[in-house]
Every structure is written in C-alpha cells, then in structure tokens.
Write a protein that binds this DNA or RNA. Structure first.
Lengths: 347, 347
DNA sequence: GTGAAAGCGCTAACAT
DNA sequence: ATGTTAGCGCTTTCAC
C-alpha cells in the first residue's frame, strides 16, 4: 500500500495526498495550518493523515524550507548544577515555540565549542545560546559568521554587537557583602573562580564595594567552578595574619567544599567562620547545610534568552538586546545561626 | 560566483564539482573517503572544497542516505548528577564514531518520553539509549516500532527483545550490606527510591541478603531519587522500636539529605548512625562528608551502550546483548570513622 | 483554493 | 575511476 520506492516505515506526504485525493502541496498547506485551504479539504486531509499515522519528516522539511526549528545551547559543564537548571528553562521555552533544543557540553574548550557550532550549523541549527563562560568569545562568533544568530546568557560579551541576558553579579555580590558586614564581618575571604569569567570579577567587585564603606577587607584566593582548588584556597585564606571571619564561595558547589574543609579544621560554621555561596542550587546538601546564597533567576534568564534569539532569527534587523537580571540574597543558617533554616522543619 | 539559485551562505557540492572540474558524485565520494576515486582527483576535489570553505549539509546527507548519524539519550533528570556523568561517557563514544548525540530530559514522564522519541524519529534520529528509569517501557518501545533501535542503560527491560547494560545492583547492595554487617550493624534503614525502578528493588534485595545470614533486619522507607522525601523517611526509620544503627540512601543525593537531618537531630555520623549511598557522585559535599558509597562504572556503561546500539543499527540481525557491570564499594568516613578520608589530605 | 513543476543539497544505483 | 540519472520528503513559486 506504500508508495515510495525505498520504504521509510512511515507514510509520506504523497501517500496522504493520494488517500485524500488532493495534491501534495495541499496536504503540506493543510498540515501547517496555511490559511489558503478549504475547510472541507483540510478536514479530509487531516483525517487521511491520521489514519495513515503520517508524521512529517523534519529533515525534509528543514531542507526544503531552510529552517530547522532547532537551536543550540552551549554550556560549560552540564555536571555543574547551575546549567541543568538553565537548560530546563531554555528547553521549556523552546517547546512552547515549537523549537527543538540541542545541548552542548563545551568543557570550556574553545576547540569543542567551535566544532559544535560548525557541526550544528551543518545540521541546520538556526542559532545558539551561549552560556559557556570559560572561553574567549572570538572563535565562536567567527564560526558563526552572523552575530544575530547568537545570544549570550550568564556571560557578558565583549563585542558590542551581541545580545545578552546576565545576572547583575556586581549587585548580587554587594548585597551579600552588605549582609555580612551588617553581621559584623570585616574580613571576608573569597574563593573566586577563574579570572577570565566576567561573573567572577563582578561578584568580587560587589563584595569589595560592600567592604569599602566600613574599612573592611576582601581576601581573594583563586579557585575554579568545581571544588577542586578549594583546599589550597581555604588554606591560603586561613593562613593570613588575621583570619577572615567569613568565607564566600564563587558558587554553592565551592562553598560546599569549603564547608567540609572547615569542619575538618574543627571550625564551627557559622560560629567561627560564616559561609555563603552563589546560585542556590537545589541539592540535598544545600538544605542540609542551610547555606546562605545569592540566587540567580535562572528561569527568567533561559526564557529571555530564547525570546531574544528567536526574535533576532525571525527579523535580523531588530536591535541588539541587553538585559540584566537582579539576584536574590537568601539568608540562611551558615551566616546567621538564629536564622530559620529549611532544617528547622524537621522535628 | 555562487551557483544555487536560492543562496545558503555556504558553497554546495555542485560548486565544488564545478571548481574541481568533476561531477558532484565524484565530489561526494572524494569527501567521504570512498575508495573508488583517483588520487589526483581526490586531491583536486579536496583542494577546491577547501578554498570554497565547503561544508557538507548533514541535513541533505541524512535525507538522501537515510542515516542521520545521530542517536538520542533519554535520561530521567539531568540535574541528578549521575546522568551528566553517563551523558558525557555516551557523548565521548559517539564522537569517536562520528555520531551526534541529543540528550532528552524526560522527567520520568511517559508522555514526554514518547514525544521525544517521536519527534526525534521525525528528525531522523537513528536510535536511542534509554536511561530514564522511572517510566513504563511499553509506550516508548511502541513509539519506536523496532526494538533494535534502542538499548537500555541503567535499567533492565522487562521485554526479552531489548538489549541492555546495567550495574549489578543486587551485588552492589550485598557488598554494602556485608560491609555494614562486618562493622557490627544488624538493623539497617534504607531510604529507598520509587518502587517501580528496578535498581531500587535490586539494591534492596542485595542489602536484605547481607542481613539474612546474621539475623539482621532491613527497615525500608520509601523515598525518591531527589532528597525531597528524605525527612519523612528518616523520621519513620528513627521512630522504629529499635533504631537502625545505619542508614543507606538509594543514592548519594538522598544520603546527603539524610546527613543533614541526622545532624539536626544531633546524631553523630558515623558514631551513632552510619551512613552510605550509591553512585559516588563527584561533588564538593561528597568529599566533605566523606560518604561511603557504591560506585557505578558509568564510563563503561555509556561506552557499551553506544557500541551495542550502533552495532544493532548497522546490522539489525545481530542478537540481543545483555550486560551486567560490577559495582565498586568505596568505604569512607561515614561508615568507618578510622577510615582515611579525602578530608585527611587537608592539614 | 488547488495543482504542477521545480528544487533544497546530497547520495546511490546504474552505466561506461 | 568517473559521469548520469533518479530520487530522499518536503516546500514553494507560479499558474489556473
């Protein structure tokens, strides 16, 4: 009963056309909801498509139309809990708009990123959301050829001609710093991330600003986004002539690592050293630690990034969009012992 | 200078053919490394392709050849650290074989899974690795139509005609149980995952077996794979007439949640209650807790799953493959206070 | 409103 | 070893 010579397992548009007694073009229109098709015809076509269990080939469609309805998301490290959160938000928005998403783990390697962009472009991917913080933007933009095909999320582009949506990391850092200062802390240790990441520098600046007013001091030790360098960093911070009374991790993951180290050193948190992080990752231990943190508005970030990208794809003439999202300080037990923590719910 | 009527931004195969003075088919062969092409010709073609910065359209290629060189990976929840690990392993093996991977987050929903399978099949995806444990396999297999197009990883199919590669969860549970028994524990609490997951039941069985020999008892409280149900579970376990002296979480994430609760209750780990998990996730807190755990061989699992799937795709006549991977017990501080923990490295 | 014809960019027989 | 001929399954002018 199938028509195509080399079978595909599923009916084609020609099969449906035959069954409905119309031409393939009409089927195509009917299926996509094109207005120029009679009510009778449309009903008939849809019925036939249904009985034949017809499924349009996205491949053929993309090839013929030049639009794949797919975008790519570049992330640094999908094992870093911040990224799945962002990815889910992006995915949700994509679905809503009938787009597909492909997630690319770059491991912060320029080479990998460029390869992804090239390969996916070959596959017809229309545009990208770039949330991989750890690499120079140049090569990726070059591989892309058109700056309108990308939106940066969670990182600020150096280029003037790229849209982005980021958190206001400086303000976030400042809020956290002010919170600590208000608690009496004057020497704060910061286990930073790699210095090439704009968010790291911004958070550092925010913390500094909070300390400036009161003559406090920020001690910075470089680390990474995982917790691998945390031990040296903590050691360095605690070796200072006057110990910091609070330590801030560049993210919650790092803060968690720091916590373990402090425990080992017999230092009570928050009694002897207060502790805080960034990102508010939703993880058993965070609740367990009751970690004070500065949350990013991940959902909004993902949603906006998709909105901006699709708008640019549809209408390349639109202007570049730049957005800064506020961050939310969540005060919990590791900075304020009296604070109601999530643990308090447990009898 | 471009030939195609409706431009694409990049040169096509006919452009290259023209530039090299040969036919498109020859270009196609030369590019794919087909043997039937003269050395001279190949060199000439490759040179022309290079100057024109030619990039083959994967889309067109897939449509014409019927092979997209892409597979899909279905995971329950990409925010669960086990899955990124698996995903990375799968991705690595895919690259090696010049395949692309698309990762699908099913949230353990049948509907989502089926939709993914259908949508990706429309997109020409050749096959799937199914690592989403939380749903009935029926609908997915049905949507797939051909059991050779799927390999289960991290979950055991009920169907006889599906290949799989899983950890030997029962043996893993038994190892952990025996370790605890050897430490003198006779009453062990188990914060299980949802009962529909085969791995949960298997781990439970393994733990039970270890306790049987010595007249011990396993107390089971149902939870989930995140730590959301951990509080009730722990409360239930500790409410027992005789408290368990050890608690095992269905995974490290849950164990981490349990840890926090025990702390809140003022119970010392491992002094008053020993604690262990599964999966050996690589996360700041795990090192901090020095959590005893049973590791899965994620890399092997991912690699094997890809091998099996591609073999079946290439040659649908091959037999179904069933593999069980051993698990590795990692004894650390939460069960054995004297144990050298990763924390010991810190001065 | 509907159909015919011409591709999208590539691969795959079949010739030679 | 290379060219020719047909498509893969769909969209899209352009007629009518």
């Amino acid at each position: 009963m199938r028509s195509s010579r080399r079978a595909r397992g599923s009916a084609t548009i020609v099969d449906v056309a035959a069954a409905a007694g119309v031409s393939p073009s009409t089927v195509s229109r009917a299926i996509r909801g094109h207005p120029d098709v009679g009510e009778q015809t449309r009903a008939q076509v849809l019925a036939s498509a249904d009985t034949l269990r017809y499924r349009p080939s996205t491949l053929a469609r993309a090839l013929a139309s030049g639009r794949s309805q797919t975008i790519g998301l570049l992330v640094s490290d999908i094992a870093n809990p911040f990224y799945p959160r962002l990815a889910k938000a992006v995915e949700r928005e994509c679905r809503k708009r009938h787009y597909s998403l492909v997630i690319c783990n770059t491991d912060d390697s320029e080479l990998e990123s460029v390869e992804y962009v090239e390969r996916l472009t070959d596959q017809g991917v229309e545009g990208f959301i770039h949330a991989s913080v750890g690499i120079d933007e140049g090569p990726v933009l070059e591989a892309l050829r058109d700056a309108k095909r990308i939106v940066f999320a969670n990182r600020r582009p150096r280029s003037e001609s790229v849209s982005y949506v980021v958190s206001n990391n400086e303000a976030g850092g400042r809020q956290l710093g002010e919170h600590l200062v208000s608690l009496g802390h004057r020497r704060i240790g910061f286990v930073a991330g790699p210095s090439w990441a704009s968010s790291v520098e911004e958070r550092r600046r925010g913390l500094s600003q909070a300390l400036e007013g009161c003559g406090g001091q920020l001690l910075v030790a470089e680390g990474d986004f995982a917790a691998t360098k945390a031990p040296q960093a903590v050691r360095a911070l605690l070796a200072a002539a006057i110990r910091p009374t609070a330590i801030v991790g560049i993210n919650d993951r790092v803060a968690g690592g720091v916590y373990g180290l402090l425990l080992d050193l017999g230092l009570h948190v928050p009694g002897e050293v207060a502790l805080a992080g960034f990102d508010n990752i939703d993880f058993g231990w965070v609740q367990a630690l009751s970690l004070t943190t500065v949350a990013q508005r991940t959902d909004t970030m993902g949603r906006r990034a998709v909105e901006i990208l699709l708008r640019q794809l549809d209408k390349p003439s639109v202007r570049i969009t730049r957005q800064e999202l506020p961050m939310d300080l969540l005060v919990r037990g590791t900075t304020d012992a009296g604070q109601t923590s999530s643990r308090a719910e447990v009898p």
